[in-house]
């Protein structure tokens, strides 16, 4: 049953009276008693509050369509800065990390913040000495091959999108395929890694692309609240770094933005096992995980 007009008016009267009280004033016990007296009172009061906040000048007077452009015009630097920050987050780098580079023939390389890499255009070889290189080869360019060299390993693309992760000693393939060869053993047949597969270079074991690799490819970041401090500590115990946007305060009620960097799949599983999480896919923004 909907609240009656009389009940809404009573709720409105109480809300208007409460809204004129100083924020520092002690809670109004009379109002709380009225709210506790019947669920209908609370519902009517919430409905009145919702109507009050829904009817602000911006909403009631300004058409929704132009708001984006108004905002852009008002704060272009803000928007630009935010976009740059998001790009940096999306690719799992520090904000001051190297920007994505178009190497040749539409090949895009994105390097992690700690990466050291050198691209030789003549032989189309990217020499990765440290960090992570995410590669997207534009197959529309005729499949011009690129090779990534990391230590003794050679990763030759076959029209594909992949990551060579020196930090985790893994190679993951998102689309197409690559061939992995070992320069220390030139007679050995290359290992073919297909879409959705990853290889652990320590064990030379093929498996599925893990959660972090999927995240890197999709540009995910994770929003957690400070109650996940224990999980963060666990991630760190496993030797991974956690990048935080915003301080964790002991009494903070705010969620914090955390960008995972090299979080092992086991740690991600540990988080999910320990916590009841609501996960929401925010598309280009990544996942939101909350208790």
């Amino acid at each position: 049953m909907k609240p009656t007009t009389e009940l809404l008016e009573e709720a409105a009267r109480r809300y208007l009276r409460e809204s004129t009280v100083s924020p520092d004033a002690p809670p109004d016990a009379t109002l709380d008693a009225w709210l506790d007296a019947a669920p209908e009172h609370r519902l009517a009061y919430a409905q009145v509050c919702a109507a009050w906040f829904a009817s602000d000048a911006e909403i009631m007077a300004v058409p929704s369509a132009p708001r984006r452009s108004e905002r852009s015009a008002r704060m272009p630097l803000w928007a630009l800065g935010f976009a740059m920050l998001m790009v940096a987050m999306v690719w799992g780098m520090r904000p001051q990390a190297q920007a994505p580079q178009v190497l040749a023939d539409g090949v895009v390389a994105k390097l992690s913040s700690n990466a050291q890499a050198d691209f030789n255009a003549a032989n189309r070889r990217l020499l990765l000495t440290r960090g992570r290189a995410w590669i997207d080869v534009n197959a529309a360019d005729g499949g011009a091959a690129i090779e990534v060299e990391w230590g003794a390993w050679r990763v030759r693309d076959i029209g594909t999108r992949f990551v060579v992760d020196g930090d985790r000693q893994r190679i993951a393939v998102y689309a197409g395929a690559v061939e992995l060869s070992d320069s220390r053993d030139p007679g050995k047949s290359p290992i073919r890694i297909g879409a959705g597969e990853a290889i652990d270079l320590n064990r030379l074991q093929l498996g599925p692309v893990d959660a972090l690799e999927q995240g890197l490819d999709r540009g995910q970041w994770i929003l957690v609240n400070q109650s996940l401090g224990a999980a963060i500590a666990e991630i760190e115990r496993e030797g991974a770094r956690v990048w935080l946007l915003g301080d964790i305060q002991p009494d903070s009620k705010l969620p914090n933005l955390i960008l995972p960097d090299r979080i092992p799949a086991t740690a991600l599983r540990a988080i999910c096992a320990q916590m009841v999480l609501h996960c929401r896919d925010l598309g280009p923004l990544g996942f939101v995980m909350r208790r």
Partner: peptide
Amino acid sequence: MSSAPASLRSASGPRAAL
């Protein structure tokens, strides 16, 4: 957690303003 781990850093710029 009483303080931010050493490997964590604070936001700056637009995100911090938000």
